Computed example of a mutant assay.
Amino acid sequence: MLTSTLLRFIFPPPSSLFITVMSVFSFTSTAYLGFSELRGKHAPYSKFWNGSSTKSGTRKQTEVSSRKGMLFSYTPAFLACLTSFVLLAPQGTRFLLLRSALTLHFFKRIFEVLFVHKYSGGMVLDLVILISLSYFTITATIIYSLHLTQGISEPPVDLKYPGVLLFLIGIGGNFYHHYLLSKLRGKSDKEYRVPKGGLFCLVICPHYLFEIIGFLGISCISQTLYAFSFTLGSALYLMGRSYATRRWYLSKLEDFPQHLKALIPYVF
């Protein structure tokens, strides 16, 4: 019963061990990172992370600036999107929409790195390489999983155009709130303050909320098991990150507005 219901909304999973393994791995790994954030175990690139206890007694690690690190993190995935237009033959509107959405997603990220975000400190090169490889692999697998549906009947419920709408809402809302965050403090301003404008009046991480909406849009365009598995895992991860962000603000600001939720207005 459950399987037949799911198959109304997604393509039948391909007989590919690689896609099956990647679907399970993408969900479990990203969900685990989210639960780690809830427990207070943060990623090394996070502003919440205190690496002082781990630096002593370990090998010296090469660092790059945060801007260069994030630029390198996104560029291979962006190039994978562009390359897919050359290496893979056209497969109709859905395939074109998926590749276009992913290309625009990573173009936006690179644009923000170069012209919007403000960075301080650096990133460990090993971590940068790991993040870059992860984004590249995820992006290539999303494209490849839809490529494998060539010749298979479309799902009875067509979600690609609602997916385009969700994607545009997500990418637009994410960019707008990233812009608001970039204007929060000047170069020499070290004071912490609560972001203002947009949905910051309701939640502390509206940029994460819109990122989830954007991922959901990409999944609806694709309608493959892998895309939805990754999106669900990413949503759990960003829930953990948003919870950690709210907890961090509470620890820094005595006058933090208690009505502000972490991610979902009035709910969470």
Results as ranks from 00 to 15, higher is better:
Leu180Tyr: 02
Phe35Ile: 11
Asp126Ala: 13
Leu133Arg: 08
Leu216Trp: 05
Val64Leu: 13
Phe85Pro: 10
Pro162Thr: 06
Cys205Lys: 00
Gly51Arg: 06
Ser23Pro: 11
Phe35Trp: 14
Phe167Tyr: 05
Gly40Lys: 06
Glu112His: 07
Leu180Lys: 02
Gly51Asp: 09
Cys205Leu: 01
Ser251Arg: 06
Thr75Phe: 14
Ala80Gly: 04
Gly51Lys: 07
Gly40Pro: 11
Gly198Ile: 02
Leu71Trp: 14
Pro13Gly: 13
Cys220Met: 15
Gly198Leu: 04
Pro265Lys: 02
His147Thr: 12
Pro14Leu: 14
Leu166Pro: 00
Ser242Lys: 00
Val124Gly: 10
Tyr249Ser: 02
Thr245Arg: 00
Ala101Phe: 00
Leu82Pro: 07
Gln223Leu: 11
Lys41Glu: 14
Gly40Glu: 12
Asp255Phe: 03
Lys118Leu: 11
Gly92Ala: 11
Gly40Trp: 07
Pro156Asp: 14
Gly217Gln: 01
His177Ser: 02
Ser251Cys: 06
Leu181Gln: 04
Ile171Gly: 01
Asp255His: 12
Pro265Ser: 09
Ser145Val: 10
Phe210Ile: 03
Phe27Tyr: 10
Pro13Glu: 15
Tyr208Pro: 02
Val164Phe: 06
Tyr135Ser: 03
Tyr144Pro: 08
Gly198Trp: 01
Asp189Arg: 04
Val194Thr: 08
Arg241Asp: 05
Ile171Lys: 00
Lys60Ser: 08
Thr58His: 10
Lys60Gln: 13
Glu191Asn: 09
Ile110Phe: 10
Phe111Gly: 08
Glu37Ala: 09
Ile204Pro: 00
Leu130Pro: 03
Pro44Gly: 07
Ser16Thr: 12
Thr103His: 10
Arg246Asp: 07
Tyr119Ser: 08
Leu127Ala: 11
Phe11Glu: 13
Val267Leu: 15
Phe230Trp: 05
Ala77Gln: 05
Lys160Arg: 12
Ser26Tyr: 04
Ala89Pro: 03
Ser229Met: 14
Gln91Thr: 10
Ile10Asn: 06
Gly197Phe: 03
Pro162Glu: 05
Ser132Tyr: 14
Glu191Ala: 12
Val64Gln: 04
Ile152Glu: 15
Ile204Arg: 00
Tyr237Trp: 01
Gly122Trp: 04
Ala43Thr: 09
Ser52Tyr: 04
Val86Arg: 10
Ile143Lys: 01
Leu125Gln: 13
Phe95Cys: 05
Lys252Leu: 15
Leu165Gln: 03
Ser234Glu: 13
Phe48Arg: 07
Thr103Pro: 06
Lys68Thr: 14
Ser84Phe: 12
Phe136Asp: 10
Met22Val: 11
Val113Thr: 13
Lys252Gln: 14
Thr139Glu: 04
Arg99Thr: 15
Phe95Gln: 03
Ala80Val: 05
Tyr119Asn: 05
Gly57Asn: 04
Tyr176Gly: 00
Ser53Thr: 09
Leu260Cys: 06
His177Tyr: 00
Arg67Gln: 14
Phe18Leu: 15
Leu104Cys: 14
Glu112Val: 01
Glu63Gln: 09
Ser53His: 08
Leu250Ser: 08
Leu238Cys: 02
Lys261Asp: 11
Asn50Ala: 12
Tyr144Asn: 11
Ile212Glu: 06
Leu225Pro: 07
Val164Trp: 05
Thr149Gly: 12
Phe111Ala: 14
Leu71Lys: 01
Ala31Cys: 08
